[in-house]
Amino acid sequence: MYDLLIGPFQEFEFMRRALAGTVALAFGAGPVGVILMLRRMSLVGDTMAHAILPGAALGFLVAGLDLVAMTLGGLAAGLTVALLAGAVARATDLKEDASLAAFFLMSLALGVTIVSMRGSNVDLLNFLFGSVLALDDPTLILMASIATVSLVVLAVIWRPLVLDCVDPGFLRSVSRVGTPAYIVFLTLLVLNLVGGFHALGTLLSVGIVIVPATVGRFWARDITGMIAVAVGTGAVSGYVGLLVSFHTGAPSGPAIILVAAVVYIVSVLFGPVGGVLPRLLPRRHLEA
């Protein structure tokens, strides 16, 4: 039992680092994911995650595997795409989802091309699926900082952010902070995706943001509960996923997201809030 559950982390430093990294990710990504889901923006998250790729790849092209260059590149690219897609949707008749899809495909193609210009296939795989088992000190500090900043900033913009989801018209009538709060939120999203990128790669980093949030919806009725469940799911998926990967030799990033996916499927089936089975249970209706 000990060898199965705790031993790997006690024995290997890289496992401890990976665990610390994923838990940090879960704390930032949980609340961001819940807001994203409640705003019906889950696919926007996906797009942004891909949008990071060409930026990070440019950083890589210029400076090699340099944390600062790749992070800044990813941030810049993610924010640019977020703003451009919004601008295209507003300036033309194209709906925002279509314009996002166009940008996401563009980014993916561009990113893969740029990485291939300099790197090997291994580098490409690292970009796409991350390298959670090779987190060095600066990367860990970056990920932990992103989680900390996310939580603090979310606390600051929480009220307008939530009100902007529930009743945007009302928020506009009492205050002008709605749009700035939304832009700050998009920035947090990109930050978390960049943090996740180092561990899980561009294709999977959005997984730790979205999947735990969708799990939260099946277990809690209020936002606070959803966030708690999402953070818990993210952290537990990290822990279990790393163990699965350690014992079976499965790639660790995908293992983490797969574990989260299993939790998701269980939640869809058994979740007390709108799960499939609780609905099917033959229970008599109430008196009033």
């Binding site: 409640l38 939530v162 529930v166 009743d167 945007p168 009492v174 009725r221 209020d222 959803m226």
Partner: peptide, 17 residues
């Protein structure tokens, strides 16, 4: 009112705003 009624917020919180 462009209220998202599926959003998990309570009567109390909405009124408090």
């Amino acid at each position: 009112a462009d209220i998202d009624r599926s959003f998990p917020v309570s009567v109390y919180d909405l009124v408090a705003m």
